[in-house]
């Protein structure tokens, strides 16, 4: 069952297109990874879907939650969805919490908004949530402020806040990037544990393929505002088809080894104001030919649940094509 379906989502900032028609669906209880270099549009996709972009952003396409259109829905509807159906946590937990409000107030607000709790019930439930995410001495810590916690603890509090609304989907936008390695692992374990208990769906946005591989059922690889490859996690990591995806995975150290930012593909992500003609990855691609500059390749669907946007797709579909082309030439 599809929970959220994003269809042809586009975003323009000041006349510059940064998302070029994203198609993405998340099933109930499914864990989907979203990877790609900085600036590829991972955050913008979900901010746009939830109506959280600044007013100057022009958003097009459709976003459906269990079949109902939510893109451009009235604020009242969106306010019930945000936090209540789809919760989102962010990269830098310290700046995502309000510095002058107590933790109790911030968690309690979600409980009041989405679960209709009040008074003592809020306090009891907030305490339970803090216990659940592993903040010790929850009773006393409820009256503390965000700056009195460490970065990892603040992310736990963000997760508690997200859980407060009993969402069907948690969008975690690089939840561990700002944290150090041991804390990263703890936070990811926490997210996995919670998913096991609640059956909540997850979208994990990350630079870190290792993290995505361990956590997600399916992975989407984004490049310059497009999805270039999508596949079940195991399939993608075994056999990446798109040259960009294989570049990313080639750049991955051992899955259990130390994690690092993706940097091993030569060149940089193009500026959305000056995209190269045709395939945006062309100038960095080792397999690029003249055909790649004609038009951006469309997503082709394969039998094993893979989709990819590359001229190489036809050779995968029909391995003999390459031989025939050589003969013809």
């Amino acid at each position: 069952m599809t929970l959220v379906a994003i269809e042809g989502l586009t975003v323009d900032f000041d006349g510059v297109r940064v998302l070029h028609g994203i198609d993405l669906h998340v099933g109930k209880g499914e864990a989907v990874g979203l990877v790609g270099e900085s600036g590829s549009g991972k955050s913008v996709t979900w901010l746009a879907a939830l109506g959280l972009l600044p007013g100057k952003a022009r958003v097009g396409g459709r976003v459906k939650l269990e079949g109902a259109d939510i893109l451009g829905a009235p604020d009242q509807t969106l306010d019930r969805i945000r936090g209540g159906r789809i919760a989102m946590i962010f990269q830098d937990p310290a700046s995502a919490l309000n510095p002058v409000l107590t933790i109790r107030r911030q968690i309690g607000e979600s409980l009041a908004l989405h679960r209709g709790l009040s008074g003592a019930a809020i306090k009891a439930e907030a305490r339970r949530l803090l216990d659940l995410v592993g903040i010790p001495d929850a009773e006393r810590r409820l009256s503390a402020y965000p700056h009195e916690f460490s970065g990892g603890q603040n992310q736990r509090i963000m997760i508690a806040m997200a859980l407060a609304g009993n969402p069907d989907l948690l969008v975690a936008d690089e939840p561990t990037t700002a944290l150090d390695a041991t804390i990263q692992a703890q936070i990811l374990d926490l997210i996995r544990d919670i998913r096991r208990e609640t059956g909540m769906a997850l979208v994990l946005i990350s630079h870190d393929l290792g993290v995505v591989a361990q956590t997600c059922d399916r992975v989407c690889v984004m490049y310059a505002g497009r999805i270039v490859e999508e596949a079940p996690a195991a399939v993608l990591f075994d056999d990446p088809a798109h040259p960009y995806a294989s570049g990313l995975i080639g750049a991955l150290p051992a899955i259990e080894g130390p994690r690092q930012r993706l940097s091993a593909i030569a060149g940089t992500v193009p500026d959305p104001r000056a995209l190269p003609p045709g395939c945006s990855f062309g100038p960095r691609c080792l397999h690029a030919t003249g055909a790649c500059t004609q038009a951006p390749p469309a997503l082709t669907t394969f039998g094993d649940g893979r989709r990819m946007a590359c001229v190489l797709a036809k050779y995968r579909l029909e391995p003999t094509a390459i031989a025939r082309e050589l003969v013809d030439a």
Partner: peptide, 29 residues
């Protein structure tokens, strides 16, 4: 413009309580 304001919106806090309950206590300082 601070990140916690977007986080508050992502939590489903409607505009008015967001400005009065979240932004104003910071702006008052």
């Amino acid at each position: 413009g601070q990140p916690f304001m977007r986080a508050a919106a992502a939590k489903g806090v409607p505009t008015r309580p967001r400005l009065i309950g979240h932004a104003f206590p910071n702006a008052a300082i």
